[in-house]
């Protein structure tokens, strides 16, 4: 079971490294915002897995806050790029 979660966390970290490479390379601002969005969704999954491994029920609240508030920054930057804000 421990080996299973080590493999899971390693594969998700590899995906996060791919996203950060796109964050460095990305030619426009939209690519970078999209990389930020994907990183935040990956972080929600990792936080829930860590809360399960540490056996603390209260640790799930952090990922709940991310799921509720995580899209506000992306929408603000998208409105700025559109010229509306």
């Amino acid at each position: 079971m421990d080996l299973f979660f080590i493999i899971i966390i390693s594969v998700i970290s590899l995906g996060a490294i791919f996203a950060i490479v796109r964050f460095i390379k990305g030619p426009t601002a939209s690519d970078r915002v999209m990389a930020l969005d994907t990183l935040s969704v990956m972080l929600i999954a990792v936080l829930v897995i860590l809360g399960f491994l540490m056996k603390r029920y209260i640790y799930i609240d952090v990922s709940l806050v991310y799921a509720v508030l995580g899209f506000i920054g992306v929408i603000t930057i998208a409105r700025y790029l559109e010229g509306g804000i």
């Binding site: 939209s30 929600i44 799930i60 990922s63 709940l64 799921a67 998208a78 409105r79 790029l81």
Partner: peptide, 29 residues
């Protein structure tokens, strides 16, 4: 609690991606 997180992800994530696509189309990408 995990089901509540799943519901919030299903609402918020397509919303932000739609706003991003619309904004970058308006920005002549």
């Amino acid at each position: 609690k995990t089901f509540i997180i799943v519901v919030f992800i299903a609402i918020a994530n397509p919303l932000s991606s739609h706003a991003l696509a619309r904004g970058s189309h308006k920005a002549k990408q």
